[in-house]
């Protein structure tokens, strides 16, 4: 196991993480650091464990009864699997965007206001309005929806729905945003918008994006981790991974030998 890529102060630091689903091992001894300045991409063929690993970072694997996580994952030095860690707080700090856009069957406004409401972030309607507007603006959706905030979120196009989900995640002011193949259900134009958005959000949030589209990883990320068969094969600066991979397996995957 080689050392994680050098970064500034790591936002998330994972050491020797293994995940089992029942008896099946999905992740084997993965160590990785994620920082605020860079967008980190996880790439690898289907079933390599990249999404599973992503879900350990905000403990979404807790919702799968058979999943067991071993190892050490720290957010700003705090052990997120510690007994006294409040999962609700953790998930408010580490937001997530899913593969398929999953807006709630509520209005656009209510979708974005959902997080601030449950976490009590707004004292009154004016503050809530402000949070909703700011989040939608950051997600690049405000201009398109400002006149129809009371329409159902599910009535938007796929790309708009995904940006709505990003706005929803932003609304609780997280520190980290995890994106699990956020463009896999979108057309190229909607994909381009999401990628542009990732660029704009970089630096404000630590962003981890899982993708099996290598061009996308090259376009949006500064750090790339290549997963294969549940292990982390190589982690480094994106340009280096794509032009000069150190591992044979990475090279094979990048050049399209498999995956």
């Amino acid at each position: 196991m080689h050392a994680p890529a050098p970064t500034a102060a790591p936002k998330i630091s994972a050491r020797h993480v293994s995940v089992h689903y029942g008896r099946k091992q999905a992740i084997d001894d993965v160590s990785i650091d994620v920082d605020m300045e860079n967008v980190t991409a996880f790439i690898g063929p289907s079933g390599c464990g990249k999404s599973t690993f992503l879900r350990t970072l905000n403990r979404m694997n807790d919702t799968i009864p058979t999943a067991r996580v071993a190892g050490d994952i720290r957010l700003d030095g705090e052990d997120i699997y510690a007994a006294d860690m409040d999962v609700v707080q953790l998930r408010a700090r580490v937001g997530m965007v899913f593969q398929k856009p999953n807006p709630f069957p509520k209005s656009i406004y209510e979708n974005v206001a959902y997080g601030p409401r449950i976490h009590g972030l707004a004292a009154n309607k004016a503050e809530l309005d402000h949070i909703v507007e700011r989040s939608l603006t950051r997600a690049g959706l405000w201009g398109e929806v400002k006149d129809r905030l009371s329409d159902s979120g599910t009535a938007l196009s796929g790309g708009q729905q995904q940006r709505l989900c990003i706005a929803r995640a932003i609304a609780v002011d997280p520190e980290v945003i995890l994106m699990d193949e956020p463009c896999s259900a979108l057309d190229p134009i909607a994909t381009a918008k999401i990628e542009e958005l990732v660029h704009e959000l970089r630096g404000k949030y630590a962003i981890v994006i899982v993708t099996h589209n290598m061009q996308q990883a090259a376009r949006v990320s500064q750090r790339t981790a290549f997963f294969h068969l549940g292990t982390l094969v190589e982690y480094g600066v994106t340009s280096q991974i794509f032009t000069n991979p150190r591992q044979e397996r990475t090279k094979d995957y990048i050049t399209g030998r498999y995956g």
Binding site: T63, V87, V88, A92, F104, P105, I118
Partner: peptide
Amino acid sequence: VPAAMRDGSLAMGATKSETIARVLMPA
């Protein structure tokens, strides 16, 4: 109700009962 709906709410830091009352039941 699709599991994605429940996951979306839990990932926002909603508790189980908040998820049920505000997302699953309306859906």
